[in-house]
């Protein structure tokens, strides 16, 4: 084997393997270093690019860290009131049924203030895709306890850990909506390693494909980190997520093609 390849030989456009999707804008993201939001944005951008639906996609941004998502994705976007993204997405989809509509929500948005909208949109089986980023905390406002905070997990409003007796149990909203007849595809993925990024990309692609076929609602939960809120470094936060979040929020498909998968 000959090893005379210099860097200049390799860095040429004909040897390109991967570059940032053109659906992403050139703006620098405001997210903290290592935040899963950036990876999730890029997965959505790549799927939009691959399906060539940039002009037909409408995104609904939530209230939370991802509220500024419209700065980073070069598609039409609309801001919803806190938690009301599924209701707004329903309206957009019904007025423009040929468009691809997705909402991108965090756990404080989808599982707390927007529970009613989420459950009813899922029950009606609207032809939209919901991308749900679950990091177990209210990241934007300073790491307060969310409905998805794990038992004994520290947050700024539960500094001694979430006491289940006093503060109640965490909510597995993904399993909850999977029970409803309107949902067609419900899955839980993550974005901390290349393997999971590839799996999540497949799930996002499937969510958009289902919309094309008018099958019903697809919900993709992405278990993510919030290293600032958890007071950890990005790498530590990913490890903590695997050790603590995954036992409670196990990744994998929950409902496929309208049928619940058994837990074997």
């Amino acid at each position: 084997m000959n090893d005379n390849l210099s860097n200049a030989d390799i860095v040429k456009c004909e040897n390109l393997v991967y570059k940032r999707s053109p659906v992403m804008t050139d703006n620098v993201m405001h997210y903290c270093p290592g935040c899963g939001h950036g990876t999730a944005h890029q997965i959505i951008a790549e799927v939009i690019e691959e399906m060539d639906i940039q002009a037909e996609t409408i995104g609904i941004t939530p209230v939370g860290c991802a509220v500024l998502m419209y700065n980073y994705l070069d598609i039409d976007m609309q801001e919803a009131a806190h938690g009301r993204a599924p209701a707004l997405a329903t309206a957009v989809k019904r007025l423009m049924p040929e468009k691809y509509v997705f909402t991108y929500q965090g756990d404080g948005d989808l599982a707390a203030i927007g529970t009613a909208e989420t459950i009813h949109a899922c029950n009606r089986g609207e032809n939209i895709a919901i991308f749900f980023i679950n990091n177990g905390i209210y990241g934007m406002t300073g790491g307060q306890m969310a409905p998805t905070t794990l038992p004994n997990m520290r947050s700024s409003t539960s500094p001694y850990g979430r006491d289940v007796e006093m503060m109640g149990n965490p909510l597995r909203i993904t399993e909850l909506v999977a029970q409803l007849p309107g949902t067609y595809y419900v899955t839980r993925q993550a974005v901390h390693t290349p393997t999971y990024v590839r799996k999540t990309k497949k799930a996002v692609r499937r969510a958009f494909e289902n919309q094309k076929l008018k099958k019903g609602l697809s919900l993709v939960e992405i278990v993510s980190n919030c290293n600032s809120g958890w007071k950890m470094s990005p790498v530590q936060a990913n490890k903590w997520m695997v050790d603590n979040m995954f036992p409670f929020y196990p990744p994998g498909d929950i409902k496929l093609e309208g049928k619940m998968l058994s837990k074997d």
């Binding site: 000959n2 090893d3 390849l5 040429k12 940032r20 992403m24 270093p33 950036g38 890029q42």
Partner: peptide, 29 residues
């Protein structure tokens, strides 16, 4: 740099999308 195989794993997990990956076949003699 000699160990890089151009697998693009770093680029797909990069939250800020700052990594561009290139690869070229090594020619045997």
């Amino acid at each position: 740099p000699d160990a890089c195989t151009g697998c693009a794993n770093c680029a797909i997990v990069c939250p800020d999308g700052v990594i561009t990956v290139y690869k070229k076949e090594r020619l045997s003699s």
